[in-house]
């Protein structure tokens, strides 16, 4: 196994570095070589498609073009936002050949396939993953939080059970954890307003927190750096006392931990809400 395209995106190169570190560590354990796309550019995120249609298309298409030049056919985009933008533009490239032309690219860019972290873990490597589990997460109640962009819209992501996805739950179960059933798994956290419209992120964040708390979750598990920033950094601002705060853990951190990797390698020390308590429980 070798040569999976890797598109870390801006967040994983910055504030979400623990997602990047834990993902690389897990890939290493699974024997998957991640090949970072040379000279990748920002996907444009919400801002680009909000105000400039063409910029949104060209940014993501340029990264796909760079992946193709590097001989890659599949690109793992761990950030939910990056994944969704690449997937939307790959879809758009099928209908609109003008985009490739504008970039002086030969047709066929749409054949570069963006992979979400869920698709990668569930379809490609779940058997290898199971074999590597050395530390069971027995007893850990996990609220699997998909947010919006990991699964929606189904025409782009190809996920059929968009209202009640179970891919993350399957992985958590495989690690010995106990996924809870809760109501906010695919509700938006409002992260694109983190800087510009704080009322939204605090309200949505609080609702998400309350829903997880009510069903007795010990931790959140997620795969989106914006959701993470929102939920991990702002629980205090949401009015949740420190002792009631829930750790917010990346799926790859959870997997890495189950594989026996240590907290520092996985960047578990970088969180605002301390994570140690959650993992202590699992030993008892």
């Amino acid at each position: 196994m070798s040569g999976l395209g890797y598109y870390p995106g801006c967040s994983l190169s910055g504030s979400a570095s623990e997602y990047d570190r834990s993902l690389r560590a897990v890939a290493g354990q699974l024997g998957v070589e991640l090949r970072e796309i040379p000279e990748w550019v920002c996907c444009g995120a919400t801002s680009a498609h909000a105000i400039d249609h063409n910029a949104a298309l060209c940014l993501a298409a340029d990264t796909l073009a760079k992946a193709r030049r590097a001989g890659l056919t599949e690109v793992l985009a761990p950030c939910a936002m990056c994944y969704q933008r690449l997937a939307v533009v790959a879809h758009e490239l099928k209908q609109n050949p003008g985009i490739a032309t504008a970039l002086d690219e030969a047709p066929g860019l749409e054949n570069i396939k963006p992979l979400s972290v869920l698709a990668w873990l569930n379809n490609g490597v779940s058997d290898a993953l199971q074999a590597k589990v050395t530390r069971s997460l027995t007893g850990l109640k996990v609220a699997c939080y998909y947010g919006c962009l990991l699964v929606r819209p189904p025409k782009i992501t190809g996920i059929q059970q968009v209202e009640a996805p179970r891919q993350m739950e399957q992985l958590v179960t495989l690690l010995g954890g106990q996924p809870v059933r809760w109501s906010m798994a695919t509700e938006c956290c409002g992260a694109s307003f983190a800087l510009s419209q704080k009322s939204t992120v605090l309200r949505q964040g609080r609702q998400i927190y309350d829903a997880a708390r009510k069903v007795g979750a010990d931790v959140f598990c997620l795969a989106c750096p914006m959701c993470h920033a929102n939920l991990d950094m702002r629980q205090g601002e949401m009015g949740i006392p420190a002792e009631a705060q829930l750790p917010v853990i990346y799926l790859t951190q959870l997997i890495g931990w189950a594989m026996g990797l240590d907290a520092t390698t996985l960047g578990l020390d970088k969180h605002f809400v301390p994570t140690a308590g959650a993992f202590a429980k699992e030993k008892s």
């Binding site: 910055g14 000279e39 801002s47 400039d52 910029a55």
Partner: peptide
Amino acid sequence: RDIQALHRTFLNSALRHGRIHE
């Protein structure tokens, strides 16, 4: 206006530097 300002700042930054420095 705040939301528009953020989008503009973000997109300019992405187009100028290729990547966002938070």
